[in-house]
């Protein structure tokens, strides 16, 4: 495991797709606020949550905002640890080079280590 995962303050686990529910947006909001408060934040896209990173997302019905624009701002908030569950991608037939941001893919065995390497874990 890489050094920068160790003892980070907060791990936010995002398990939902954009548009279908508010989970993804609300999880990202928590991450952004924590980062704005100076915490070191890692994001873990898990299960359906990996679809948040797909390129070419649009507004939903009635101009419903998605989350792609928020994801593009992550760097500005110094959220640089973006982790993706490898199995989440492969289950949907996706690969990491199709994603809008550079991510680190986690094998099943690495997932548990990431969870124990953070002082606080929030699941959305």
């Amino acid at each position: 495991m890489q050094e920068h995962h160790d003892d980070s303050d907060l791990l936010v686990i995002l398990r939902h797709a954009p548009h279908g529910s508010s989970w993804l947006r609300e999880g990202l909001d928590a991450a952004l606020v924590a980062a704005a408060f100076g915490r070191r934040v890692s994001l873990l896209f898990m299960g359906e949550g990996v679809t948040a990173l797909l390129r070419g997302q649009q507004l939903g019905p009635l101009g419903q905002k998605g989350t792609a624009a928020t994801l593009e701002m992550l760097e500005m908030y110094d959220i640089e640890t973006l982790l993706v569950e490898e199995q989440g991608l492969s289950r949907l037939g996706l690969s990491s080079d199709e994603l809008m941001l550079e991510v680190e893919c986690l094998s099943p065995s690495a997932l548990a280590r990431v969870l124990s390497g953070h002082r606080l874990v929030l699941t959305f």
């Binding site: 398990r15 299960g47 548990a112 280590r113 124990s116």
Partner: peptide, 15 residues
């Protein structure tokens, strides 16, 4: 529900 799989994926051997 497949949530149990997510939990298992996140578990260390002592969890």
């Amino acid at each position: 529900s497949r949530v149990y799989q997510q939990a298992l994926a996140g578990m260390s051997p002592e969890d």
